[in-house]
Write a protein that binds this DNA or RNA. Sequence first.
DNA 1: GCCGTTTTCGGCCCGACTGTTTTCAGTCG
Length: 569
Amino acid sequence: MINQKLAELFYKIADILEMRGVEWKPRAYRRAAKGIETLVEDVSDIYKKQGVRALKEIPGVGERIAEKIEEFIKTGRIKEFERLSETTPKHLNELMDVPGLGARRARILYQKLGIRTIAQLKKAAEQHKICKLPTFKEKSEENIIEGIKFIKSSGGRKLLSIVLPVALKIEARLKKFGQVSIAGSLRRRKETIKDIDILVASEEPKYVINFFTKMPEVKRVLARGPTKSTVILDNNIQADVRVVGKTSFGSALLYFTGSKEHNIALRELAIKKGYKLNEYGLFKGAKKLAGKTEEDVYKKLGLKYIEPELRESLGEIEAARRNKLPRLVSIQDIRGDIHVHTKWSDGDNSIEEMALTAKKLGYEYICITDHSKTRAIAHGLKEGRLLKQIQEIKKLNKKIKGIRVLTGSEVDILADGSLDYGDDILKKLDVVIAAVHSGFKMPKEKMTARIVKALENEHVDILDHPTGRIINTRPPYQVDLDKIFKRAKELGKFIEINAFPDRLDLKDVDIKRAIRVGVKLTIGTDAHDVNHLRYMAFGVATARRGWAEKKDILNCLSTKEFLKVFKIK
DNA sequence: GCCGTTTTCGGCCCGACTGTTTTCAGTCG
């Protein structure tokens, strides 16, 4: 599958062209990249079967880009890209991370002062070299220095789980002004969030803006207009509020939720129909056709309602047009959590405490999956203790009512693909989750073979966190997911979406691929504490972003059905 | 560089806010 690699190249070309001040081409390259990303089929297969002509059928791909795709398939490179990157310093777009600096002014900084990095930028601003440049003044230097401080302290994008509670608190407070909704990537439940966006419907925007900019946690006001304001909160999260009239709430929510690409696609669709779409509504001439609710706007555009998690311009608009949208899984569909740790290994709570909390959450079953013996650092269970735990769970099931506790293990996949317990032990467990916790630096083929070998063990049921990534901390290890999905399907094995907020592994786009292959998935919280059981919501959100339906997720099954699938008595 | 049931040339989403600016470009979402 070369689609992703190719899309990345085109995105990079777009960035470079943008830095150079080239007009329109960046947009064309990005559209082509998006078109390629959205494809189900491998680009090289399309080319093999029907040649360049078929490539041009891909949305956003024309004559010139089709040639570049052909070149990449034949030679593994795109000369144009190499030419561009040779003559453009790398990392120049890091300047564009500074709030207030876009492509145009970043280019001026480079051309006039040779600034390429944030460090050089900071020095130049402090030495007052920048205010002499065109389009810059003293105020710009202040803003640049402030902006760099912000980047350093905020560390870029934050985890969904960190930002969401902050946003919910603000949302609740703004309710007294009228209809309120969290919008932006937060509403789409992206795994990381750059800023909080909140929309308010009110005919008195000045009161809202006044209240918002004076909230106790506001550290700095970046912008404050009559209907829109941007602030930095004391935890260095940026928050934007926008106020619109009640009759525009839907169209404004649509606009403010994004994604940007989704909005552009909708607006283009509107234009094709002879309409105009903006945050105030959908218009035909001066006549407003829709705007009060999102549903109204979609309907008038000839589309079914699209859930926020799907709004990434990855095929959802076409699916909405053809009434082929998935019926997304929801948190209410989840009947049990099947990845839970306890005090027996590195968790904080007893088996009983975890079970009772799960019961309170409305679950019918829970599976205890402590670490295996090699995870000594996590107090992994030696065989004797695991057998003892199995007995303990048997006793507990007689004692507590209303929830079934299953036995299991999160067993290490060792470097050679063998498992951390022998078959004699594994066969005693209800559910066996296998996972890689060491030897991350293996080459791709070796890692893939290692995981496949583990899946081929007859006692293994589920593969957990298939890429091993920790968001913002550790990159994924090299692994051929397509191969893993294919083998898992053949063997009737499952893949877990780990719901822990810094893992979310599988991630959204990989979930979509897995479902396409036909692998069944599970969602497990990897809870190490009773409070972590609530992380299920993040796992479900990620599954939804991956177009998952109830039927794709195994722990949507009732206890009876679940036990049958796992052949548990 | 792409695209066309108004177009094969001349467009390319759209509006708010800031400050580079005294009428508009740049940036952002």
